[in-house]
Amino acid sequence: MTKDAKPLIRVEDLCKQFHELTVLKHITEEIREGEVVSIIGPSGGGKSTFLRCLNLLEQPTSGKVFFQGVEITDQKIDVDRHRQKMGMVFQHFNVFPHLTVLQNITLAPTLERGLSKAQAEEEALVLLERVGLSDKRDEYPRKLSGGQKQRLAIVRALAMKPDVMLFDEPTSALDPEMVKDVLKVIQDLALSGMTIVNVTHEMGFARELSDRVLFMDGGIIAEQGTPQEIFGNPQNPRTIDFLSKVL
């Protein structure tokens, strides 16, 4: 990642309210191409809501979100098309239980990328090989472990050939022995140059892998910097307090 890389996602004065509760307060931020950004912070600090506003799974109350220079918060624009380029992985996997592993991956590419079934399957098999799930291609998700489901969810998103991957606490719902496999996949992805925004509680992972760490608390980005700055020499008292509790 170079410092002068183009911004891929830009957020301007983003606010999100749920009824009386203000979750995000006037956030302005950029994610640059090829950047790996980790978002850390206490629960209820707005991390997940911020991430979900990036692909408009949450509709911001006010403010603008730009993706590849296009304002996707514009009501007139077809947001589905832009979402295809923003892969997302959820804490609870959300794999499709009624489809086989292979169908989970090929569904969106055949419907929305116009691939033939054969092409989509060919691509899917390459992806499955990459995450070590080739032998599970015809299984239904109920036969998979949590870690396998999450790896499936990752390649399902990758099959749309996204320009950015959004991870919403991808390992929080996993048994400890499964965490490593999933982190390995995300790490490989980061090393391959994918732009990644990762909401995480895995501090070691954030520290090793990120180009930049955002600390969110109380609906704002309270502090940000390189992993060395945030973990080695935090400035904000809230960051210091948080890190002292989790490290």
């Binding site: 589905d80 832009h82 979402r83 959300n94 749309m160």
Partner: peptide, 8 residues
């Protein structure tokens, strides 16, 4: 949410 995030 998963379906939306895939751009369906």
């Amino acid at each position: 949410e998963a379906a939306k995030s895939l751009g369906l």
